[in-house]
């Protein structure tokens, strides 16, 4: 298991280098950078000398290959550089906002999984009935309703019924749990709906597949209670593929957070990413992309290792 883990970690290095190279050069293909957005963004007239000196200060005047060398050297020494806009370290900008986004992500996961298991299971067990159809429509709705609009509907509902909107300033959970939860449960629901739909659909289809297996027929034939057939024999096996989906969707929750944080005015990772894109803050974009890629690869590895824990047939040498 340890050797397998190390091997997998080694294999991720080329992918990560690929991500770094791709993002670095993509951002620099078309001219235009943070200096222009900063100094000329509001239509202000700034002389070319000022622009040039600012570029020089940020190191944007150096040949591309030097900039790339600096960047790769920084990555190798785990230094993501400083933001071109705020000029604070990228790691500091990220860590300031990580707590909030991570908490929303975890709450969304709990919400999604708790709802998805009963939904997916009942849909599979009552296949072809109206219950199945309702679940199908609800889950396709989860894939179709944009999370930012769902978030806006939640806000409108809160305003209409309680005349209250969640506060904008973030209270950590260890300072005031109630204030924290009442603030973050809404964005968690907004991103969690899609998550829940994806997981429920996966559980439904994998449970249907498992229910056709011989060992289910055997269990039924020898007179095991249907409840136990479902919960112990079928569901346990059907949940394995669901774990993959839960893991990957968790790593990709940032996608939902990008828009949802905008709706709820939360200062998290997603909002930081949108800001850095609209400001052409290359170093911050690169840093965040690297962080997300590392996170994604890490979650993937954990999912694969969990497989071995849950399925005794799988052993990693």
């Amino acid at each position: 298991m340890l050797r397998y883990t190390l091997q997998r970690l080694l294999m991720t290095i080329p992918t990560l280098i690929g991500v770094a190279v791709l993002v670095f050069f993509m951002l620099r293909v078309v001219p235009g950078d943070v200096v222009e957005v900063k100094l000329r963004g509001d239509g202000g007239t700034v002389s070319q000398e000022v622009i040039d000196s600012e570029r020089k200060r940020l190191g944007l005047d150096k040949p591309l290959i030097y900039q790339f060398g600096d960047y790769m050297y920084g990555l190798a020494t785990l230094n993501l550089g400083t933001s071109m806009w705020t000029e604070r370290p990228v790691t500091e900008e990220i860590s300031l906002r990580l707590e909030l986004s991570l908490q929303v992500a975890i709450m969304a996961t709990i919400f999604a999984v708790l709802l998805a298991i009963p939904l997916g299971t009942t849909a599979a067990l009552m296949r072809g009935t109206w219950v199945d159809y309702v679940v199908r429509i609800v889950t396709i709705g989860g894939l179709s309703i944009p999370s930012f609009w769902f978030g806006m509907l939640i806000m409108m509902g809160l305003l209409y019924y309680w005349n209250w909107l969640p506060p904008i300033t973030f209270t950590p959970i260890y300072v005031d749990p109630i204030a924290n939860l009442t603030q973050l449960i809404w964005p968690a629901m907004a991103v969690g709906y899609r998550y829940c739909a994806v997981v429920a659909r996966m559980i439904r289809s994998s449970l249907l597949e498992v229910l056709n297996e011989d060992y289910i027929r055997t269990a039924r034939a020898k007179g095991v209670f249907e409840k136990i057939v479902i919960s112990r024999h079928a569901l346990r096996n059907a949940l394995l593929p669901a774990i993959t989906v839960i893991g990957i969707e968790f790593a990709f929750l940032i996608g939902g957070l990008v828009v949802t944080e905008q709706v709820f005015n939360l200062n998290g990772i997603g909002k930081l990413f949108v800001q850095s894109v609209s400001r052409s803050d290359f170093t911050l974009i690169q840093g965040m992309v690297m962080m997300l890629a590392v996170f994604y690869i890490f979650v993937n590895l954990v999912v694969d290792l969990l497989y071995a824990v849950f399925d005794p047939r799988i052993r990693y040498g």
Partner: peptide, 26 residues
């Protein structure tokens, strides 16, 4: 496939945003 792996390491909207950042407005 390795190249596709690189692209798959991004959530859809993040990759789209990186492309937007790269191409500016065209």
């Amino acid at each position: 496939q390795r190249f596709m792996d690189i692209l798959l390491a991004f959530p859809i909207i993040v990759l789209a945003l990186v492309v937007v950042a790269a191409l500016k407005t065209a």
